[in-house]
């Protein structure tokens, strides 16, 4: 009973938090863009030449002369109905652009998130098990250097090595040029996905590996590990039974908390590989002053980060057996 109550309370709180967050984020970002020197009419027209009369009509349509508060309320009102407006550069509803682009990026983000998580965890465990040895130092150095590496530069270097010099992978785009959408095979997609995903995975390893290493060293110097050693347990067996069990959950939690950086990395990597995902859409929306699309992406990415944090919270509060036990005893 109390558990059900707890879950209901948790969900309720989270929903309220998300709503308040979205309200503030949408208001702040709307006002930021509103007071910037962006001219929606010019953004819409681009290089087209139009009559003054036509321009006036457009100005009225985009609400150049309506006060910002009123504009915000109009925009927020249609948001509530699920209408994000129409993208200026793609000339289709923002929500459709985001859906399509996010799907492409999701493959990229999910694969690199998984690979970097697993690889980072393994590296961290290996380094922690061999603390102070050459192997540990090599892994540590690798992580330090990675943490200082500009994402887009690594992407450029990989692109130069594997696409330009070796010619193993295509230079850009998430699907081949000149092929109908329905004829794009799974393999084509995979081929265009590998390099961007590799870049993000290689960079994502650093944080999780360092964290796992620290945590494992901490656990291995605890009393219960000492006791286990006294009973004669040692080597990999000891680490598997006592170390990893205690380290895995915090590491997974940390990985879920990294959605914000994951998104940032995706933007940079997509720009280098011209991978047609949400990151590239963000950059073009920003550069070409596509306000509705930009605001839509801000809101969606906020939800994305929020979901990551919420999953981390759920793991922390509902799955960790130690916290469950603590609550049942009190």
């Amino acid at each position: 009973m109390s558990n059900k109550k707890k879950i209901a309370g948790f969900i309720g709180k989270k929903i309220l938090r998300l709503i308040s967050l979205l309200l503030v984020v949408s208001f702040v970002s709307f006002m930021l863009v509103q007071y910037s020197p962006i001219d929606p009419v010019r953004a819409y027209l681009g290089e087209m030449a139009v009559s003054a009369e036509h321009k006036e009509k457009l100005e009225e349509y985009w609400g150049v002369n309506t006060p910002p508060q009123e504009k915000f309320l109009n925009w927020a009102g249609s948001l509530l109905k699920g209408d994000f407006g129409v993208s200026l550069i793609y000339r289709m509803p923002v929500i459709d652009v985001i859906k399509e682009r996010f799907k492409a990026s999701l493959a990229l983000m999910a694969s690199s998130w998984l690979i970097s998580g697993i690889l980072g965890f393994i590296l961290g465990v290996v380094a922690g098990m061999n603390k102070g040895t050459l192997l540990d130092r090599v892994i540590k150095t690798y992580c330090y250097v990675l943490a200082a590496t500009p994402t887009f530069w690594l992407a450029l270097v990989l692109l130069m090595i594997f696409s330009v010099y070796l010619g193993w992978f295509p230079i850009g785009l998430s699907v081949p040029i000149g092929v109908m959408a329905e004829n794009v095979t799974f393999f084509d997609r995979l081929e265009h996905l590998i390099l961007p995903a590799l870049t993000l995975s290689v960079l994502g390893v650093a944080q999780i590996a360092m964290f796992t290493r620290e945590k494992l060293i901490e656990v291995m110097s605890s009393d219960y590990v000492l006791f286990a050693k006294a009973r004669g347990e040692k080597g990999l067996d000891l680490v598997l039974r006592h170390g990893i069990r205690n380290v895995a959950l915090p590491a997974i939690t940390l990985q879920f908390l990294s959605f914000s950086e994951l998104f940032g990395g995706t933007v940079l990597v997509e720009q280098v590989f011209s991978y047609q995902g949400i990151g590239l859409a963000t950059v073009s929306a920003g550069l070409k002053s596509d306000v509705p699309l930009l605001l839509g992406i801000v809101l969606i990415s906020t939800v994305f980060v929020f979901v990551g944090n919420m999953i981390a919270d759920i793991i922390y509060q509902f799955i960790d057996p130690r916290i469950k036990q603590q609550e049942s005893t009190t």
Partner: peptide, 21 residues
């Protein structure tokens, strides 16, 4: 702090940068 961390960091910088021209 929570509000600032709720938008992906890079996107927030882009947004502010655009807002300031």
């Amino acid at each position: 702090v929570d509000l600032t961390l709720s938008i992906p960091h890079l996107l927030l910088i882009i947004l502010i940068s655009i807002g300031l021209g």
